[in-house]
Design a binder for these strands. Sequence first.
DNA 1: TATATTGACTTGTTAGTCCG
DNA 2: CGGACTAACAAGTCAATATA
Length: 333
Amino acid sequence: MEEIRKSEFLSVVEETRLRLKDNSEWRARYASYAEKISDNLCFIKSVRSSFHEWSPLKVYLNVTSAKTAKNSVSFELRYMGQTVANLSGKTDKLHKLSTNNYETTNLRDFGCNIPLSGANWYGEDAAKFRGFFKNRKGNRNIGDHKKNEEHRLESLLLTEFSRIKNKTIRHIKSVTIGRVRFPMPTPISASNHKAIKYSGTNGGGIDILARTGTGGKATRLCILELKDENIKSEPPKEAIKQAIAYATFIRELLRSDAGAAWWKLFGSGGKIPEPLELYAACVMPSGLYNDYSFSNMDLDIERDIIKLHYLYFNEENNRITIKSGNTTLAVTE
DNA sequence: TATATTGACTTGTTAGTCCG
DNA sequence: CGGACTAACAAGTCAATATA
């Protein structure tokens, strides 16, 4: 039984590697991403640190913005994981806030009717906008879109990971670019359980990229696949397969010519370890279908390893909590 | 009856194009 | 170059329909 399951996981690794081998365009493209983002990193950091992140709004940066951030950077502001505005800034502190394209959903989901187009971040209107979300109580408005529930949980987990003290899960940090949350793209699609597809520039994104460990050789890069429900039709076994596919991509990326540049962007100093050990984990609310069977299973890729983990969480007062034994990912309180 | 399959629809991300 | 826009597609929701 155990062996059958392991071979199923290994075939995900194999299939993913095959797709990546048959389609090599990603190599040059991801090398160019890394180069451009690294070039812009100082600038991104300086702009990011020039303004305050007003809770509960959270700042995000996608790859497109990161690599085109030459003289100005466009950040996303998300509330409960959903984008509500763009904030573009230069070093001159004349940051501009726009709600273009988000007005309909802002009103529908949060009752926010404050349209802004290039409003001064330090002006009255922008303050009103930030104040609205700060004072807003309760969850999303009725007519919930399930998709956004996943983003809300993703945001809660990132918040938990970025805590400095009283962390529910110790020794875990989300990977950021220039201290900004960013969604890592991949060139493969793995959401369909039956097949791994090569999708070039339109691949799926990694839900959460994080590091665990206490530093030095103990540090591991983790690829987390998050589901907002614990249900029979999408059990942990399928979620972990998605995580394995993305982890396989990260492994190939780190072993490509641009590997060192990405390793640095992911926040690790020094050389890529030999062997490289990556964690792949399924993350979902604790429930009936919790699956503990693949705990710490190793999948070999040549000299490297993907180690499987799980994290089944609970939620209390808008915070993630974890019952003892429900994660192998890191130390729990 | 319970489960699978299908397609329309929603949302997010990227690349590319055009303009000032 | 930045900004506005579009096309394309992943991934997910949801409900109607088909099938065992």
